[in-house]
């Protein structure tokens, strides 16, 4: 099997495992997600167990993986390089948090839930795609403007960074 085919198989299988993990963990159920966010109601800590185990595992595994000179199928690691805590990071996280609290869906569970065929999941994903594309085009338009302020100067960089980070 050549490496391009191998890469495609690995990515596809990873996607399947990711979705099954989301489903088994309860994260495809918006009520469980909102239950976690409801710190002043009947709090449901399940999401903490999910993030805790997924992150905990990779706190260990990333250590070993990143010691390699390169990943198995690529020439180099493609990791986010931005370090600064800027306004888009915080404002974006606030907007995402609001939508997450309202809908109980983040991108992974929403895409996985398309398989249920419910109108709600389809409508959420279409809206999410519209918001995502709308913002990318807005960001590109901002970056293309001639007068460079500090904001527009790092906007083009953050498109690249966003693709890699997110």
């Amino acid at each position: 099997m050549n490496s391009a085919v191998m890469r495609n198989v690995v990515v596809f299988v990873s996607g399947v495992i990711f979705a099954v993990g989301l489903g088994l963990s309860g994260m495809t159920q918006p009520d469980k997600v909102k239950g976690f966010l409801d710190f002043f109601g009947k709090w449901d800590p399940t999401l903490l167990a999910v993030i805790g185990s997924a992150t905990g595992l990779n706190l260990i595994l990333f250590r070993f993986i990143l010691k390699r000179p390169a990943p198995i199928l690529e020439a180099k690691f493609s990791l986010p390089t931005k370090k600064d805590i800027d306004r888009p990071l915080v404002v974006g996280a606030v907007l995402f948090g609001i939508g997450w609290g309202v809908g109980g869906f983040c991108p992974g569970p929403a895409l996985t839930s398309l398989a249920s065929g419910t109108f709600t999941a389809v409508l959420f994903v279409v809206s999410m795609a519209a918001g995502s594309l709308g913002y990318l085009f807005f960001e590109k338009a901002q970056a293309a403007k001639p007068a460079p302020s500090t904001d527009t100067a790092n906007a083009s960089g953050s498109i690249e960074a966003a693709k890699k980070a997110a």
Binding site: G99, G103, S127, G131
Partner: peptide, 18 residues
């Protein structure tokens, strides 16, 4: 509304829960 906020917010903030 939830979908739009998640779409815009995750792009602006360079990432989501994962």
């Amino acid at each position: 509304v939830a979908g739009l906020f998640v779409g815009v917010g995750t792009r602006m903030g360079s990432g989501c829960t994962s």
